[in-house]
Structure formats: structure tokens, C-alpha cells
Amino acid sequence: MNDWFASLKSIVGRHEPGDDPHALPRAAAALLLELAVTDEGGDAAELDIVHEAMRRTFGLGTAELQDLLDQAHQAQRESVSLYEFTRQLRTGLAPEQRAELVEWMWRVAYADARLEKHEEHLVRRVADLLAVPHPEFVRRKLLARGD
């Protein structure tokens, strides 16, 4: 019984921000990667947007960015729900930052010049989990589509 609890605690703790300065960028990257890989492994345009989002939003250098994205990709593959990431971001980011993340998700979705239904559904779910108000969700969609 003790081993089971320790195992569960390590799974939950793996995604807790704690003292890790990269916890929030890693959670954001995991969500963006989730969107980028929804259609047949993702393409270069979508992954370029993920890189740009992480550089602009979190000011990461090339080496640091690649390491963080590797960690985020691993976390994304191991996750059982979006809530693991959105919970951290909802409490760790200001409302404007959460809305900006939704806009970056829209940019990833539009990167290949087509919006799939599952991509829109994923962005909508994440926006709900991040408590981004619907008018802001729509505004960010229009901003991303206009680029």
C-alpha cells in the first residue's frame, strides 16, 4: 500500500510547479505540442509556431528551448489528461497570459492553413480549463486567424 501511494505521489508531483522555474513553460509547451501532434504527427509549420511561442513568451534560448520541449513532449506523452497542465497554468499565469496561450494554440491550429474540428475542440477545452472567458476566446481566435 505504501508503494502505491509513493508511486501516485511521484506521478502527481512530477507535474507540480514547486521550485522548478520551467514548470509553467513546460506545461504550456505540452499543451501546444498536444495540439501540434493531433493531426498525423504534426508538421514543421506547427512546430515552428510552438518554438516561436516558447521563445517569445518565456524568453528561452535555443539550447534551453530544445531541452524544455523534449521534457514537455515526454510529459505530454505520459499525461492522462489536459488538467495536469491546465491546473498549473490556471493558478500560475495571469488571465491575460492564459488568453495569450489560447491565442498561441489558435496559431498552431491555423499553421497548416486549415482548422480541423478536433483542433478547434481541443483549443476550446483548454480555454475552458484555463478559465478564459468566451469573448476573449473568440477574440484570440480572430487575432490568430488574421496573421
Rank of each mutant, 00 (worst) to 15 (best):
Tyr83Gln: 10
Ala23Ile: 01
Leu143Lys: 07
Val138Leu: 09
Leu82Ile: 06
Ala127Ser: 05
Thr38Val: 12
Gly18Cys: 04
Ala109Ile: 04
Ala72His: 03
Leu68Ile: 10
Ala144Val: 00
Leu33Glu: 08
Thr62Ile: 15
Arg139Pro: 05
Ala63Glu: 14
Glu64Trp: 11
Arg140Asp: 05
Asp20Trp: 04
Asp48Asn: 11
Gly18Arg: 11
Leu31Val: 03
Leu32Val: 09
Trp4Pro: 12
Ala6Ser: 14
Ala75Gly: 02
Arg98His: 12
Leu129Pro: 02
Lys117Thr: 14
Ala53Leu: 01
Val126Ile: 12
Val12Pro: 02
Arg139Ile: 06
Arg90His: 15
Ala27Gly: 06
Ala144Met: 01
Trp4Asp: 15
Leu31Trp: 07
Glu136Tyr: 02
Arg145Val: 05
Ala44Asp: 15
Val12His: 01
Pro21Gly: 07
Leu60Thr: 08
Arg14Pro: 05
Asp19Asn: 13
Thr57Gly: 01
His73Tyr: 13
Asp67Trp: 14
Gly146Phe: 05
Ser81Pro: 08
Glu119Asp: 07
Asp43Asn: 15
His118Cys: 09
Ala99Ser: 08
Arg140His: 07
Lys117Phe: 05
Ala36Pro: 06
Pro135His: 12
Val80Thr: 13
Val37Gly: 13
Gly59Met: 00
Ile11Arg: 15
Ser7Met: 10
Thr57Ile: 01
Ala94Glu: 13
Leu143Val: 07
Val132Trp: 00
Val108Ile: 06
Glu64Gly: 15
Leu129Asn: 02
Gly59Tyr: 00
Gly59Trp: 03
Glu52Arg: 14
Val126Asn: 03
Asp48Ser: 14
Val126Lys: 01
Val80Cys: 00
Ala144Lys: 00
Val138Ser: 01
Trp104Ile: 03
Asp67Ala: 15
Arg107Tyr: 01
Pro135Gln: 10
Met105Gly: 09
Asp19Thr: 07
Val138Gln: 06
Ala53Phe: 04
Leu33Gln: 09
Gly41Cys: 13
Glu136Arg: 12
Ala113Cys: 11
Arg14Leu: 03
Pro17Lys: 09
Asp67Val: 15
Val132Pro: 04
